[in-house]
Design a binder for these strands. Structure first.
Lengths: 220, 220
DNA sequence: TATTGTGAACCTCTTCACAGCT
DNA sequence: AGCTGTGAAGAGGTTCACAATA
């Protein structure tokens, strides 16, 4: 049951909007750091690389945080965004695949800020299991179920070779993970209740080469 | 001058379409490896995680590669996609910032396939400059201009701390780079002729926590 | 019969323009 | 006067439905 069975409520924010919120938050934090206490939608938009109307529409979906004639209070807005994005919570991460990329991810700032916390690391290679990365000991993937059993809902990060990504994802889902960040170049086939975000280096590069080719062709 | 000053030509493929092409290509390669020579839009769509109509629309933008009643020839389609994505070309990459993430990227399979080739590595830290990563020696970023001078148009990869990402991007653009893949959590402000694709780990995680929160709220 | 290729309807996001507030 | 919040218009992408075709 949803809380809004009549369909009269406000539309949920689009994925595009949700993806912009962290950008606003980051820009606002920098503004706060440089002593700015108020910002207009135009200024915030320029810093975030979008249009001013987009900023106002995005923010208005969550409430009226601005003051007409003045703009938005930076601290207030950071707080509101932080709350919507879950920044005031603890978000345990389970990372599977502690190779070059997995290690880099675990050590990255993005994985250690805003409430995210590396809760457990798994791999299958004997020479990796038992080592410590960023203060967390790597366990064998076979211990997944035993280790995660009593843990709260987690976000799973798949940084394995593509050949095992599907199986790893299925086992993560089986232990209760409903949000997966997948770095393996493989489309994960999972139930409808599971959210997957795909980060694919090869795809990123291929999109770029597509447009490079196109530019060349148009300059003939 | 464009090749189509009348505006009568077919619409260019949308970014969404371009981002799906590498996925199709990867799925098709796997199909070819498993001995499949023909595939329907329905089957290809299921494997790529999209709808069948999307596949047909996407592919039809580039030509009529299918056979009615039969489907698509896998080899033919791989070849066509490869050509459109520039897979038959050499794409030199310039990677700046050889920390944990930069090293992982350079060693990743995505950076060494499909015509992409790590051409030069740069960093500013004295203990990194001079080391060899994946067979390429890391140079000091000050040598960028001298090193890249005569090189063909490249794709630039920014894997630096966010504080220097903007300056690094500007210098890359100054030496002729028009496509940038940015891993630094910073909005790059560059001229309109420069393409930027942003990969932001922190944003990915925050998008996930947003939806996790939303799920919790709807289950009250 | 099976499946593609595609115009049209549909839906979603963006942009515009301005009323409303400070 | 300046800026937000928002309905309406516009643009773009997806889904539908089916004619075309092997």
């Amino acid at each position: 049951m949803r809380g809004d069975p009549t369909g009269r409520g406000p539309r949920p924010p689009s994925l595009a909007t949700v993806e912009r919120l962290p950008v606003y938050q980051r820009v606002l934090s920098e503004l706060l750091g440089s002593g700015t206490s108020t910002v207009s939608s135009e200024h915030l938009a320029a810093a975030a690389g979008v249009g001013a109307a987009v900023v106002r529409k995005d923010l208005s979906l969550f409430g009226s945080f601005g003051t007409r004639g003045m703009g938005y209070d930076v601290s207030l807005l950071i707080g509101e965004l932080d709350r919507r994005l879950g920044g005031d919570r603890d978000w345990p991460l389970i990372v599977v695949g502690i190779g070059n990329l997995g290690t880099a991810l675990v050590n990255s700032e993005g994985f250690r800020s805003r409430g995210f916390r590396v809760a457990a690391l798994f791999d299958a290679a004997p020479d990796v299991v038992g080592t410590t990365v960023a203060g967390v000991q790597v366990r064998h993937f076979d211990e997944l179920e035993a280790t995660v059993a009593g843990t709260a809902a987690c976000i799973g990060v798949v940084a394995t070779p593509p050949s095992v990504a599907q199986a790893v994802a299925e086992r993560l889902v089986a232990v209760g993970v409903r949000s997966l960040l997948n770095f393996a170049p493989r489309v994960l086939q999972l139930g409808p209740g599971v959210r997957v975000r795909q980060v694919d280096l090869s795809t990123e590069l291929q999109v770029m080469s597509f447009y490079e080719l196109r530019d060349e062709a148009s300059q003939l």
